[in-house]
């Protein structure tokens, strides 16, 4: 276990190093670093000063080491727009995105699993087939368009829900949260639903497939033969086995939920880091772009590690160190 964890940590460090190289090459070789580091309205003297200060006249590998040094110390430059350290800026928006992402994942489990169980138990029923047909829409509908339609129906036509922003927030552990106030919750309903749609479809399909596969297996017959109630067989015995793939996929999908929050946040003007990155790309605020990318890489590597760990807890058959 310890050996495995160590090996994975070393691997994670290498992936992160590889990403710093990609981001560095992207910013400094493909893009123009002078344009990135200096605001567009700087004069010539300022340009030369910054070029010297950042060592842009030095060889590339030396520049890379300098960049890496900054990354390690958490110094990724200042945002041109907000004139604040880029990393702090991203960090400030981080809770809003996480709140939205976690709510969306929770929604996809709460809605997806019951629907999937039903569709799995009654695959030929009218409702079961309708659920499956609906899940195809969940995959096919473009997220941003669904968001627009939600706004049109529930905010413009019916006027039930607010369409933009986080609403009133309340402080908890020194961070502002929306889910603690009524108004904040109302603001969260549409963005969270929008972000969850694709994953509801995914969880639903996985659960349905799991139910259909497991119901035919020996252990289910045995449990029934033992005289257990059908609900106990389903919710205790079958459920445990379905949860393995579902948890893995939810864990792995958490990263894409955070990535897709970029779209949802833009539609609903949710002030998270996804909205910030789009605004930053549009005004070429590149220190913020770099900070966002590095943050996302760290997040992804962490998620992958956690999912693997969780896997062993849920399924004791998986041995991480590879021994039989």
């Amino acid at each position: 276990m310890t050996t495995w964890l160590l090996r994975r940590l070393v691997q994670a460090v290498f992936v992160m190093l590889a990403m710093t190289v990609i981001v560095f090459v992207g910013v400094n070789v493909i893009g123009d670093p002078v344009e990135i580091l200096i605001s567009p309205d700087a004069d010539q003297a300022e340009r030369l000063r910054v070029i010297a200060a950042f060592g842009l006249d030095k060889p590339l590998w030396e520049q890379y080491l300098h960049f890496l040094g900054g990354v390690v110390q958490g110094d990724l430059g200042k945002s041109f727009v907000f004139n604040e350290p880029a990393l702090r800026l991203i960090g400030g928006r981080f809770p809003a995105t996480m709140e939205l992402a976690f709510t969306a994942v929770a929604l996809s489990v709460i809605v997806g699993i019951p629907l999937g169980l039903y569709a799995g138990l009654k695959p030929d029923g009218l409702l079961g087939r309708a659920i499956m047909a609906g899940s195809i829409l969940g995959f096919s509908l473009p997220t941003f368009w669904v968001g627009l339609m939600l706004i049109m129906v529930f905010a413009v036509q019916l006027g039930w829900l607010p369409s933009t922003g986080r609403g009133t927030t309340a402080e908890f552990l020194g961070i502002q949260w929306s889910f603690l106030t009524r108004d904040g919750l109302a603001h969260m309903v549409m963005p969270a639903t929008n972000l969850a749609l694709g994953n509801i479809a995914l969880v639903l399909r996985l659960t349905r497939a799991g139910v259909r596969e497991n119901l035919g297996l020996e252990y289910v017959k045995f449990a029934r033969a033992k005289g257990l109630s059908p609900s106990r067989v389903l919710f205790v015995h079958v459920m445990k086995n379905i949860m393995i793939p579902v948890v893995t996929v939810i864990g792995l999908e958490f990263g894409s939920v955070v990535a897709f929050a970029v779209v949802t946040e833009s539609v609903f003007a949710w002030p998270g880091m996804g909205k910030l990155i789009i605004d930053s790309i549009n005004v070429l605020d590149r220190p913020v772009i770099v900070a966002y990318l590095m943050m996302i890489v760290v997040l992804f590597v962490t998620i992958n590690l956690l999912v693997d760990l969780m896997y062993t807890v849920l399924d004791p058959r998986v041995r991480l160190d590879g021994r039989e």
């Binding site: 981001v23 910013v27 493909i30 990535a259 990155i277 790309i281 990318l293 992804f300």
Partner: peptide, 13 residues
């Protein structure tokens, strides 16, 4: 890495 993220990164550069 999710497709949208990679695409964003490339278009940002």
């Amino acid at each position: 890495f999710p497709a949208i993220l990679v695409a964003l990164m490339i278009l940002a550069f």
